[in-house]
Write a protein that binds this DNA or RNA. Structure first.
Lengths: 227, 227
DNA sequence: ATCTCTGGTGATCACTCGATAAACTGGCTC
DNA sequence: GAGCCAGTTTATCGAGTGATCACCAGAGAT
């Protein structure tokens, strides 16, 4: 109490951050704001969240749109982990636990209120980055899953057919929609996410196996086209 | 050209609609506008779509919020068909074609750009009507599906367990997400919707059967809990 | 032909939005 | 301590928002 302390006096209002820190803080709080309010959220509301004034934003971003782009970059690229493809394709392990592990970590990464809401808002705006992400899911996840499933079923591993890809999308979308229900709709869901994934996998793998058998049968003895 | 025509001269600017027609037109075009722009879409842009001036809106709706509520009512209640529960529960037909028919007509009703976008926007706003709709899907569709599946599998038909409901949600969400990919993300999807539904059903039913068998096994000879 | 009722318009208010320019300030070097 | 400089604020602009008011106009009844 008595010392006049040349050390920082625990200033009531933290100000004068370094440029990098301030810029980063803008992106962080903007993500929160836009996740809740959509990208119509105001720059003044954002500044209030940081405890600064609104024009300060324009020292760090030329326009609100640039800030939004930065938010996209961080949200989309942030949780992206490079080990996922390895996890899916590692044939030294049985396929089922591979898929279980993958969807466990994948949903751990994206099942947050912030991520899902930003994702849907960007999807509704039809932005390129959203298209890019969807393509990434298809190429890096779904085609890989199909390939592994075909391998497991003893089928030739070629490019997945459109129908197979759709199958994988429906499966993937079913799991994804769990997150939407929980974090967007705030609807009650089965609390045990791991069980949900496990059950979804049971159904998908059992179903895929049956389909694969049928496909194999059809290849051996093609049935006539309905008509 | 020469006749002074007391008949309506095919007026260039249609004006002076009846109150009911004008009000209805406001809701229709507002649905289009809000589907594209979100509910931030402006009242002036709306009026422009009708070819009238903006203050006219306030002859028919006390506020923009009331207009939005009317949009919700029409969008959510419009495609709701009362025959759905009958379709699902009609045990004179095999379960699979029942489900195929149901999802065919259900997705015919809601897989439009307008419906899906309005639905997601309202979901992001966390409105009561969205919660109501989700509850309706659960009660009127999913529990019924589970009940019929249990009946088909020769299991006792009681209240569906939380895990079973989740199963149905994942299945339903997978199909729903097809619409999201097609109409929200504008992503390429398997064009044949009926086949997508058919394949999803194949997988779901085959999977459910297997799960049901396991559940029956477990009831006969309970396995020890993993530990 | 005139009156009246009602669908529709023009002008405008108070407010919020994104963005800009100029002034201020606190810590740093010389 | 003088002076600079980067981080921050104050004041403000122009455009766009939802909403209100007084007014207009045209078809139907008398």
């Amino acid at each position: 109490m008595s010392r006049k302390t040349p050390v920082k006096p625990a200033r009531a209002k933290q100000k004068r951050l370094s440029a990098d820190d301030r810029r980063s803080e803008f992106v962080t709080r903007a993500t929160e704001l836009f996740a809740e309010e959509g990208f119509g959220g105001g720059t003044r509301a954002l500044a209030r969240k940081l405890g600064v004034t609104q024009p300060l934003l324009y020292r760090y971003f030329p326009s609100k749109d640039d800030l939004i782009k930065e938010v996209y970059r961080r949200v989309y690229l942030g949780p992206l982990e490079p080990g996922w493809d390895k996890l899916l394709s590692d044939r030294s392990r049985p396929l089922r636990p591979r898929l279980q592990d993958f969807y466990q970590t994948y949903t751990d990464a994206i099942f947050t209120r912030k991520w899902l809401r930003i994702y849907l808002y960007s999807g509704l705006k039809g932005l390129d980055i959203n298209r890019w992400y969807v393509g990434m899911v298809k190429d890096k996840i779904l085609t890989r899953i199909i390939r592994e499933c075909r391998h497991e079923a003893g089928l030739a591993v070629s490019k997945p057919s459109a129908a197979e890809l759709e199958l994988a999308w429906v499966f993937h979308g079913g799991i994804f929609y769990y997150g939407v229900r929980k974090y967007i709709y705030d609807a009650p869901v089965l609390e045990d996410k791991a069980q949900m994934i496990s059950d979804a996998l049971d159904i998908f793998l059992a179903g895929f196996e049956r389909i694969a058998e049928n496909a194999a049968d059809r290849r051996r003895a093609p049935v006539k086209v309905a008509g």
